[in-house]
Nucleic acid binder design. Structure first.
Lengths: 208, 208
DNA sequence: GGGCTAACAGAACGAACGTTCGTATGCCGA
DNA sequence: TCGGCATACGAACGTTCGTTCTGTTAGCCC
């Protein structure tokens, strides 16, 4: 039968939303389709009107999440040339996405292990494109003399890792607003990249 | 029955080792006891000579891992008073443990979700004790004028997060030795904490 | 308002799940 | 050499798994 008010787009969105929550809570392998269906409000068998298999569903989910973060990042960096300004934009975007979509970020990092080898490679390539944006910014800053680091690769990894932290513990009602948190992290990153913090607006303001 | 050469201590160690690997690969909920038993080389039912339940087994496993890291850290910091020296010791210890036991670290971070509320609280308390060590070092350095930060709490979280990175991608045969990697991270951390890098032995060597 | 299709219910499949239990065998002290 | 404890087997319990299939109803078009 067809239940009252049922609609393909709404159901699909509900499935994705519930899946993110349940994979976050139980892990992909341990998320049963019956639990997912119950959370959506349909029967388990009905999920197969929307997914081809549990396995391919995971890939589609992770792929869309990562692609969305990449699209947002690209849009935000567009038109900015100065390495320091690009870095500030990257930091703000990264923290914003990670605090806005913490569960999506979590499962994108954790459940790559559950993908087939082919899908795993595709996801790693996507992630590398994202991290490559930061790497290019750092390399650009080094070339222009704005940054100074021991090892650009390690610095890239370190910055990515530390900026991902707030996705775990940030709460909107917490001690810091998103803006002040971004400022604090921005200051630390610029310090890491060779003490160029003094040339930024922020340091000037603080010293005033 | 009793199989040839079977021994309680050896079997227990094998169970722990296999469990870490399988939880790392599949997640706790998705790791079946039959798969664990097969990896150890015994039957599923025989596991219950060593565990009380799958649930309590997870807690014991995570608890021992975290306690071990805490014991190692405490031993390494023992007798060191200077904040900068204590920080260097913390960084070296953290990176060393995280690269030596990457799977243990991974599951300790990821599978807290699968613990009962009581066990979850106990694990968070343990983790907070560990992170509290870094926090005290930073606070001590601020008090002595060695460090300068915008927010000690955020700085603590940022350092913990960025130092955990290598546990994911570090390979012993890779581009960096553990020592040089530790040096690079040490430099970045000291930069983050107010540009006191110039006062460290490392910076002096580099400038020479 | 009658037919068409999109959307879902619900039963069913064999396999696998955590856990219990009775039984059998290796090992060690006497 | 032999009794007893330590250690593991392997069958069994009821439940749940991913997936397929058939049937039935709601919403839309003419």
């Amino acid at each position: 039968m067809r239940t009252v008010g049922s609609n393909r787009n709404d159901t699909l969105r509900a499935i994705r939303q519930s899946a993110v929550k349940l994979i976050y809570e139980h892990g992909y392998e341990a998320m049963s389709l019956r639990l997912l269906a119950k959370d959506v409000g349909i029967q388990a068998g009905s999920l197969y009107n929307y997914i081809q298999s549990k396995q391919s569903f995971l890939y589609q989910l992770l792929k869309e999440i990562t692609e969305e973060s990449l699209v947002e990042l690209t849009a935000r960096l567009d038109g900015i040339d100065d390495p320091a300004a690009r870095l500030r934009a990257f930091i703000a975007q990264h923290i914003a996405f990670h605090t806005r979509r913490p569960k999506e970020v979590f499962i994108s990092n954790m459940e790559l292990r559950s993908l087939s080898p082919k899908h795993y490679k595709a996801m790693v390539a996507l992630r590398d494109r994202y991290q490559g944006c930061l790497r290019e910014i750092i390399d650009g800053g080094i070339a222009s003399g704005a940054f100074r680091v021991d090892d650009p690769g390690v610095a890239t990894a370190a910055i990515i890792a530390m900026l991902a932290g707030p996705s775990v513990w940030y709460r909107a009602k917490g001690r810091h607003s998103l803006e002040s948190l971004t400022e604090i992290y921005t200051g630390m990153v610029f310090d890491m990249l060779g003490g160029t913090r003094a040339t930024t607006r922020r340091r000037v303001l603080r010293r005033a």
